[in-house]
Design a protein around this nucleic acid. Sequence first.
DNA 1: ATCGATTGTTTGAGTCGTCAAGATAAGTTC
DNA 2: GAACTTATCTTGACGACTCAAACAATCGAT
Lengths: 219, 219
Amino acid sequence: MPSSTVENYLKAILHLQGEGRGSTTVGEISRELEVTPGTVTIMMRHLKARGLVAYEPRRGLSLKPRGVTEAMKVVRRHRLIEAFLVEVMGLDWSEVHEEAEILEHVISDRLLDRINEMLGEPTHDPHGDPIPDRNGVLAKDRAMPLLDAAAGRYRVVRVSDEDSALLEWLNEKGVRIGEEFEVSDPDRAAGVLELSRRGGKRVQLGLQVAGQVFVEAVA
Amino acid sequence: MPSSTVENYLKAILHLQGEGRGSTTVGEISRELEVTPGTVTIMMRHLKARGLVAYEPRRGLSLKPRGVTEAMKVVRRHRLIEAFLVEVMGLDWSEVHEEAEILEHVISDRLLDRINEMLGEPTHDPHGDPIPDRNGVLAKDRAMPLLDAAAGRYRVVRVSDEDSALLEWLNEKGVRIGEEFEVSDPDRAAGVLELSRRGGKRVQLGLQVAGQVFVEAVA
DNA sequence: ATCGATTGTTTGAGTCGTCAAGATAAGTTC
DNA sequence: GAACTTATCTTGACGACTCAAACAATCGAT
């Protein structure tokens, strides 16, 4: 079984390679995990020896199928735990990411199954991230960053789970998963974008923030 | 903060010194934790340097007050987690010890508080072991081993949580915390002792087993 | 196509927890 | 009290993970 450390590397690689080019680099991983590049190099040799990543020195790297499978298991645990902490334990969605970062490495299969049942085999976590199924298969969503949305009507489907201050703020403003808003064209000069709810309440977001909120057009 | 390993040593010492003489030895710890005596010696030096144990080479050792406090925190976490797993998650009392052995080292204070609230600040875990309060104070019970009980009427108040086969068996036979039974004099020759419930069902236990079940006389 | 910046690799070292095996001290038994 | 047994301690080593710092390759731009 992979150690917690190995699990964290796999998760980081999955995350980084999953944004475009399909591969990542030592430097990116080192920044993501806040370890020195030398440490990453050594770990990559190790992961290569275990058949989890494809790695050629100085050429970048990517997960091999077995690495993807392992990483998906961790992601599944993470997201089920987040859902559990919100739904059953009543924690706030801004608190659960950190907790899940720890528990994802130690929870037993038995307990995870129990959680899955209690929640009715959920497909998404509290931030709208899809939960991989038992085989590591992930439902795709068609979400786009709010930042890229033309003016129109949209539903919030996903929010980045890593910045808890952002999550608290969104919660306070009533920007939650599933809510629908009328979106204005971004005012690039002001660096601001406006959401308005059917009721009327308006919310202004910085474009930075708008990049972390993902939406789907409403028909 | 103590590492998981240190927590396990403290818990083991608390457990071992808590049975009589108030102190324990390197050998006992080494057997309890299944590590070699040399490993224990090194850890004892370490714990002594941290002010957690009183240790003089070859003279045995015991927890200092700070060590007791730390150990009690771990015991509290362990027992609250066990209670949670049974009450909320619906696991069987025979399954929860192992799970709690792992989770006790990683659960956050926030989550532990939440568990404590959800359960209504319980005083005992599912095996009848008392849960230390926030200050590490433990309610005493007057339980005696069933083995030492004279014939009479008794209530089961506590069962050793470490042997899951025993727990399953007891559960199957209806021997649960809080149940009352008429206890026969032990038949030392046969190595057996009999419980009978008001209804009439009888249960035979080996004396070995009877040493792990703790009871209180009923008035 | 060479310079400088960026990125990645290597090397040497440290921490934590562990074991194996040999040395020593403390009982026990005759 | 000598011999044997058991408990404890010491030493040297290892595996996992990490860093710091020296070194090497690559890339981009002039």
